[in-house]
């Protein structure tokens, strides 16, 4: 039926002036444009909100130096240079919730020399599981895809799927022996160590 109606309107075109064809084209073009606008507005309104994490607060929250957070005291670290795992606590925001003094991550801390402290984020730089210290092997090990990391340097051992070694964190030891750690998370799965 509709086909017939179309044919009829085609045949109504004045072959001399083409006025009918132009009117037809303008109507069609106008309808298509109106349609795009009609569909586009709700879609655009939605997309703006959906992309909020890259355009709005989420992205703005990055940038600026991560603060040094007090974690423990130098005395609490084993003197033989074995690593110990410490939870990192700070205030944490999650969309509409603000949680005071939450565990935001964890780090392995280890004494180096008299007053030095080495810190590694426990997050495996491969795909984000948490590494554990293996006492018998004296190394760090990720149970997810079997990445292993050297104790001294955090470098990945042979046959480890991780693209880089464990992410070291900046540390400070103040005069009263408190250990502060600049806690950050880093982009996973790549060779380069880049803060999230």
């Amino acid at each position: 039926m509709t086909m017939n109606a179309d044919e009829k309107s085609e045949s109504a075109t004045d072959p001399q002036t083409g006025a009918g064809a132009r009117r037809d084209f303008l109507l069609k073009a106008g309808s298509v444009c109106a349609g795009c606008a009609l569909a586009g507005v709700p879609v655009a309104a939605g997309l703006r909100v959906v992309t909020h994490p890259v355009t709005g607060g989420g992205a703005a929250a990055v940038g600026g130096e991560a603060p040094f957070l007090p974690v423990t005291t130098l005395d609490s670290l084993p003197e033989d240079g074995s690593p110990a795992k410490f939870m990192i606590r700070a205030d944490k925001s999650d969309a509409w919730s603000r949680f005071p003094n939450q565990v935001i991550g964890a780090a392995f801390l280890r004494r180096v020399g008299e007053r030095g402290v080495q810190a590694f984020n426990v997050v495996c730089p491969h795909l984000g599981c948490a590494v554990e210290f293996r006492e018998p092997n004296r190394d760090y090990f990720c149970p997810c895809h079997n990445s292993a990391f050297e104790l001294e340097s955090g470098t990945q051992e042979a046959n480890s799927p991780s693209a880089r070694g464990l992410d070291s964190l900046e540390t400070q030891v103040d005069d009263s022996g408190n250990v502060l750690v600049q806690f950050q998370n880093f982009v996973m799965g790549i060779k380069e160590k880049r803060p999230v």
Binding site: V50, T51, P53, V54, G58, A59, A61, V62, D94, A95, W96, S97, N185, V196
Partner: peptide, 12 residues
């Protein structure tokens, strides 16, 4: 970020 709703896992 868009899928996760931010830099880290949470409400969003």
């Amino acid at each position: 970020r868009i899928v996760v709703g931010g830099a880290d896992y949470g409400h969003h």
